[in-house]
Each structure stands twice: as structure tokens, then as C-alpha cells.
Design a protein around this nucleic acid. Structure first.
Lengths: 137, 137
DNA sequence: ATATTTGCAAAGCCTTTGCAGGGGA
DNA sequence: TCCCCTGCAAAGGCTTTGCAAATAT
């Protein structure tokens, strides 16, 4: 995964442009998810925050992540293999590959996938979710 | 959806072949899901059972459905748009189309979909989940 | 007689919500 | 000041689990 590595300023700007007050918690969580984390769950974020931010409440973690999702800064995904929501700093349309042994998630560029669907034309497809599962050699 | 409409005997046989004791509840639920229901949730099954079987416990509904899944008679799916597990009597590999306005789920024959994935060959794809969302005209 | 299955209730997991206190604009 | 943010705890939705009573082989 190739993280863009945004500066604190970049992040503050993004939050403000999205109309989100750049509080300490939001800046920190946003920085973590955008620069360091790889498809973290709320729990992952909470654990990181406990270590790196001092105690923060679970509710704030959820609220913050939801705020960032609403602001379009993050995307959330649910995968079949886990009950937990996963946050993705890649907000572009894309697909996923799940390593079945580790659970690690890899983004797949839709340009690398060609999908031809021959279903009756009354089905108007507006959104495609593709999740590949397998192993990595 | 084209249900095969199995007789009570067919179903009893299927359960027994799978090594599952054909109790009243299992036969009834199995018959409902195989013959009548369309991608029901555990809740849907419970509601149906309350009306058609006399009271049954929620736990038994879940246990029964899990037993049927383990036996390979049903498949379970989780979709991003709902937190609930959905049961499918189509145990063959297949994809799904979700009507975004009603939530109704349609099975898609994999033969109708061609997927070409050009990702590095270290990714060994063993399983493909494809969920289409859209509307039906 | 022995192994399953059922029902009930309680607990579990993940997430959201209510409310009071606190901090920033 | 005023509004939004935070923290805590409680509740919510879905599913599983523990245990005793009922049932099947």
C-alpha cells in the first residue's frame, strides 16, 4: 500500500474543507488512518489511540470515524469474513483482495479488472462490489 | 426465483443424507427456506415459524439454520447493506444483485458474468464475491 | 439408556445513543 | 456566550452459549 503521507497541515486543511472542526482527536485519528493504518477497524483505531493519544473513549472513536466517513475523507466497508466495519483511506471506487490466512486486505484498482455482466437489462447496475479471497504466495 | 419445490420426503432424505436428524423444526424450517422463502434472514424464519409452527425459540431457529448451513443444505451470506445474515437455498457458487430500493436479492448465474482480473500472480484467487446493487426498471 | 435437541435466558460482540461536563469559536 | 465535542455508561441489534427439561434412537 502506498500511503500519500500527508502532513498535519494537509490534514487540517482537508478537515476544514469538509466542514469538520479539526479537533485534536480528529486530527490524530485522521492522520493515523490516512498515513499509517491499513484498513483498520474501529478497534484498531481505539488501540492505537490508547497508546498514542492517551485515553480516548470508544464513542469518540466511533463518532470520529463516522464523521470522517460522512465528510468523504474515509470510506467504510464490511466484509463477509468479519463482523467489523473496516475503514479505508482510499475513497475512490475500488475492489478488495482478502488474504484468507491473515485477513489482510489489499486494494485492487478497478482498472485491473474487467467485468462483463450479461443480465436482463431491467437490472440497472449502479454499484459493483467485488471481493476476492485467496492466498498470497 | 425458481424454487425446486421439494416434497417433505425429499427434504427428510436430504437431512438424513447429511447426517442431520430430521426433527419437526428442522423439517419445517428446511421446507420453508427451500420451497418458499427468498433469501430470508433468521428473523424472517422466526416470524414465519411463529405463525406456522407454533412458538419456537429464537435459539432453535439460529441453531437449525446453522445446522443446515453446516450440512451444506443452505448457504449463508452477509451483505454490506444489512447487518443480518441471509440464508440462501442456492448452494452453488453464484453472485447477487441487490435492489437498492427494496433490498430484495436476486441470484446471478456466474455463467452470465465474465471477470478478468489482471493482478500480480502472487495473488491466488480462490473465491470471488460479487454483489451488484442498483434498481430494477 | 444415551445422545441430541429444544427452550429460555443470559451473555457476547460491535455499534449507537443519551446526557452531563468541558472546550473552542 | 453558545455550540459542538468529548467521555462515560447504558442501550441497541444480531447472534451465540449455558443449562435444564424434553425428545429421539
Amino acid at each position: 500500500m502506498n500511503k500519500p503521507c500527508l502532513s498535519a497541515n494537509d490534514i487540517q486543511e482537508r478537515l476544514q474543507n469538509a466542514g469538520v472542526q479539526p479537533t485534536l482527536q480528529r486530527l490524530a485519528i485522521c492522520k493515523f488512518v490516512l498515513n499509517e493504518a491499513d484498513h483498520p477497524t474501529a478497534d484498531d483505531v481505539k488501540e492505537w489511540a490508547d497508546v498514542n493519544l492517551g485515553k480516548i473513549s470508544q464513542a469518540t472513536v466511533y463518532n470520529t470515524l463516522n464523521t470522517l466517513v460522512d465528510a468523504g475523507i474515509l470510506k467504510e466497508f464490511k466484509f463477509p469474513h468479519s463482523g467489523k466495519v473496516v475503514y479505508d483511506c482510499n475513497t475512490h471506487d475500488h475492489f478488495h483482495f482478502v488474504d484468507e490466512s491473515t485477513g489482510k486486505i489489499y486494494d485492487i484498482d478497478p482498472a485491473d479488472v474487467k467485468i462483463d455482466i450479461a443480465i436482463p437489462k431491467k437490472f440497472k447496475v449502479k454499484d459493483i462490489k467485488l471481493v476476492l479471497k485467496g492466498e498470497i504466495k
